[in-house]
Amino acid sequence: SEELRLSHQWSNQDVRNKVAQIVADEVAAADVDLDIKIFGSQSLFKAREQYTPLSRGQLDMTILPLSYAGGQQPAYNLTLMPGLVKNHDHAARLNNSDFMKALQEIMAQDDVMVLVHGYLAGGFAGTKGCITKPEDVAGLQTRAAGKAFEQMLAGAGASIASMSSSEIYNAMQTGVLDAANTSSSSFVSYRIYEQVKCYTPAGDVALWFMYQPMLMNKSTFEALNEEQQAALLDAAAKAQAFYLEEAKKEDAASADVFREAGVEIATMSQADFDAWRALAQKTSYAKFVEDTPDGQKLLDMALAVE
């Protein structure tokens, strides 16, 4: 039977692996002579090296933060922009918007298409104190997830240290790092609660949302027969519903883990959020518009989603 290869960077227990597994299982159950083989934990490609082979047809499918490919398509940087997404339901509405259609047109230029939409949220953690508003990060050595967040935090007076999320634990332990921003699930899986004093999880308002879809090479998809295509799309729809529900649960679950570990839990107020967003407009949004062809138009489309 025909075989598709799906690569991702996460462990077996991660929600994104479960999403991949649902698609693989559903397609297998549909009995359309199609197999999806999952290569997790970066066992085939490193996290940031998946988009290129995907776009060249050397890899069939992947689940990745789209902003990883922001160096190739600057428009993708909009999928990790501070304060652009307010909460998970808002994220779901974004997925069906004109903004997402415009993004998908850009993906099509790279021969890439979306199978499963999904956003995951994240928060902040500090070894010295709580981080809720811009003043809290001034002078701290901070690791941010994503270029736009680095620009915004630098604007707030933080010193930026770049590293992967797997290095946060050691960097905090040795004192190289005072604060970090990453996804709720990374905070838990890298046991950051052992190193920090205070955690600000994603709540009713959250700053950090990252678009992490399941992508497929478009030509490969189009080369499948109709039944196979239908089976894939059905499976993807089921996985997408699951993904949204799990994404909502993860933020609260991460807060529980940190609370149980004796870490102080802080909340970001609407006023804090507005202060961050005002700062982001001056820093990351402005830089995005400057660097991206049609940047302002895309930004307006995203901001127009209620």
Binding site: R48, R56, S67, Y68, A69, G70, G71, Q72, N77, K147, E150, Q151, I160, S162, D291
Partner: peptide, 18 residues
């Protein structure tokens, strides 16, 4: 050549031309 033609940059603040 691919990277050159498509103008790829690294996805960092520095954004070096790859």
């Amino acid at each position: 050549h691919f990277a050159y033609e498509r103008g790829w940059k690294s996805d960092t603040v520095w954004g070096v031309r790859l």
